Computed example of a mutant assay.
Amino acid sequence: MVIGATGQIGRVAVGALARDGWEVTAVSRGGGRDASWPGEVHAVRADREDAAALAAAVGDGCDVLVDMVAFGPAHARQLTSLADRVGSAVVISSVSVYEDDKGRNFDTQAEPDGFPEYPVPIPEEQRTVRPGDTSYSTRKAGLERELLDAGGRLPATLLRAGAIHGPHCRTPRELYFVKRNLDGRPRRVIAFGGESRFHPASVHNIAELIRLAAARPGTRVLNAVDPDAPTVSEVARAIDEVMGVETESVLVDGPPPAPSVGDTPWSVPVPVVCDMAAAERELGYRPVVRYAETLPETVAWIEERLTGRDWREAYPKMLQSYGDLFDYTAEDAFLDR
């Protein structure tokens, strides 16, 4: 059973599991299907916030429950309440739970000297934020804690995903460069010398991890990222290549020179790069795609979403998360200076 089946990761994971021989029930609020799914996938409508509806969807039970949309301790308790009917679980978490050795994390990054300095690469043993209800990161940490503590009743693999990319993403970081290219912008400003590295995670590689974890039940935490972590400059050039354009990158040493200039969705002062050795060791994991290989489908999806629409209408969550990414007036003023 896959909860959140019609979301960004769920669409790919359902297909991967079905093709691997699983009998898959795809649960979503709308009860829809993806055109790529094999015909035998059973689609069910249920809102995971409705505990009774979710329990009814589980019915007499399932061997594996895959949860794409668990965001806090309450969702973890919802899953553990079904432990007598579920063989094991695979649940999506986030690299945002990590904290550096000085107690800095994603929630402190806006403070002076608040950006975390993680080891490169980050192992799963790195300390995490304290569970709570104050932020996305603390809720994910609470989700992890509840499920790990319940490992004796419900074995659960927690996958700490990086910067997820692929079609159907509500906050595609690639939008930053795709829209500039569509708008014919000849130059773009990139902070931190274009060297920022924020580890991406393809939906295809995450789906492969889900497939492997489903067949190997256990209580564990694993990073879920791509085999490579390109710099933001490398990302920009790769998108240019897909779109067949040539654009000049104006690199700025240090942080963005203005609030809406050069601050890409990947811009970080120090690397955020994760170690995949544990997944390789415990699941026999090998990545199925590399970042650049997946860009054509991502770019095509963004272009289609933008056709005839304002980007704020097409991607409202992107505006909410990052603010105005396309303040060309401020950008031109900086370039003119």
Rank of each mutant, 00 (worst) to 15 (best):
P131F: 00
A201Q: 03
L17G: 05
D133I: 11
D324C: 07
S233W: 01
G32C: 07
L82W: 02
S137C: 04
A51H: 14
R29P: 02
A213Q: 03
D50N: 12
T157N: 07
E174F: 12
D332K: 10
Q320N: 09
L306A: 08
V129T: 03
A55I: 09
G308A: 03
G194D: 02
D84R: 08
P112G: 07
R145P: 13
E331F: 07
V44H: 09
A156V: 13
V64S: 05
L17Y: 01
G262W: 05
Q8A: 13
C274W: 05
L79A: 15
W22L: 04
R309G: 11
P112C: 05
E144T: 09
T247K: 04
G10R: 00
T157G: 08
W266G: 03
S202W: 00
P186D: 08
P186S: 12
H204L: 14
G162Y: 01
P230K: 10
P167F: 07
E280Q: 15
M243Y: 00
G10Y: 01
G114K: 04
V12W: 04
V64Q: 06
S321D: 13
E195M: 13
R139P: 00
G72I: 02
A70N: 02
T80C: 14
E174W: 10
Y118M: 08
A236D: 11
A277S: 15
P200T: 02
E125Y: 06
T6K: 06
A314H: 03
V273H: 02
P200Y: 06
R19V: 12
A110H: 13
G218C: 04
T247N: 05
I3T: 10
L54M: 09
